[in-house]
């Protein structure tokens, strides 16, 4: 690995100053579970690593019934899984965080890191898309909020500008009878990158769908929403048949490729299956809320 400097600021301001100080060659390190591998493979060669794990607001999980959730971007996945609040209000996002790598990885990796690494196959991204998450970004020019669906610009790239970092993930409070679910397809039962991931968030009004969002992973250059599938469901009863149809519509949003992890043909098929299952799972939970 190349040589680099390491700083561990304790405030966002310090972090922003450090990041802005070293041109394009400074990088945030949070869990490091993607970054250190990229550095070992010489894919990234930052001259400065800014460790943000010591910044209190980046480690916070707080929920307010009106304002919703503030989730520190550096909170390790395992703490998300151990949070009652997360299980109660965002079970789908919580299960996505609990699917990343092994427990060893979850002890380090964060949702902020997963977001900023911007892999098309990131497990938490479809779940964040489904719950309408917003990235709170702080940089030299101040603070801005970017919805996750506008965050990614391509495989491994995003809207972050020089000196900027994602400080928190903001998620609106779930409406009554709302719940989310995330499901992925991997050939093994753990320790894999999703061949396809599907997140769904459903709000029910009686037995009809009042609102729905569907996020998909590993089927396009970035994690994407499947708006047609979601719109189709509005006003309908969510059952095997409508979920199946929504799955078919989700397939139309996907533009998967062949790679070492799966074929385009297989991915296209599985998008439908997982969308259906995620929707049915979210609806099942929503009925109990």
């Amino acid at each position: 690995m190349h040589e680099f400097s390491y700083e561990a600021p304790t405030t966002v301001d310090q972090a922003v100053k450090l990041l802005a100080s070293d041109g394009d060659s400074a990088r945030v390190i949070c869990g490091g579970t993607d970054l250190l591998i990229q550095m070992r493979n010489a894919v990234r060669k930052p001259r400065l690593l800014v460790d943000v794990k010591g910044i209190p607001e980046m480690r916070e999980i707080s929920f307010d019934a009106k304002a919703g959730l503030k989730l520190g971007a550096a909170v390790p996945c395992i703490e998300i899984h151990e949070s009652q609040v997360m299980h109660r209000y965002y079970p789908g996002l919580t299960e996505a965080a609990h699917l990343i790598g092994s427990l060893q990885i979850q002890s380090r990796a964060s949702i902020g890191g997963n977001l900023c690494n911007s892999s098309p196959a990131a497990d938490t991204s479809p779940a964040l898309l489904a719950v309408g998450a917003i990235a709170k970004i702080v940089g030299p020019a101040g603070t801005r909020e970017v919805p996750v669906e506008k965050f990614f610009t391509g495989p491994g790239t995003n809207v972050l500008q020089k000196g900027e970092l994602v400080v928190q993930i903001l998620i609106p409070p779930p409406a009554p009878h709302t719940a989310d679910r995330y499901i992925r397809m991997i050939p093994r039962n753990e320790m894999d990158i999703a061949i396809v991931g599907a997140g769904a968030c459903v709000t029910l009004d009686g037995d009809k769908v009042a609102a729905a969002r569907i996020g998909l992973g590993a089927v396009a250059p970035t994690p994407i929403l499947a708006p047609k599938a979601a719109e189709y469901l509005i006003g309908k009863k969510l059952d095997e048949k409508t979920a199946e149809r929504a799955g078919e519509l989700a397939r139309e949003s996907a533009s998967p490729i062949d790679d070492m992890r799966g074929t385009a043909e297989y991915r296209r098929h599985v998008v439908g299956v997982l969308t259906k299952r995620a929707l049915l799972g979210a609806a099942e939970r929503a009925r109990q809320n």
């Binding site: 869990g31 490091g32 250190l36 690593l49 395992i78 790598g101 092994s102 060893q104 990885i105 002890s107």
Partner: peptide
């Protein structure tokens, strides 16, 4: 790469791949 776990240590009681921590 954090995939085999042979380097697992506990950091403040949590299991961590020591190859993926500085």
């Amino acid at each position: 790469t954090g995939d085999c776990g042979a380097c697992t240590v506990l950091v403040d009681g949590r299991p961590v791949c020591s190859c993926l921590m500085l």
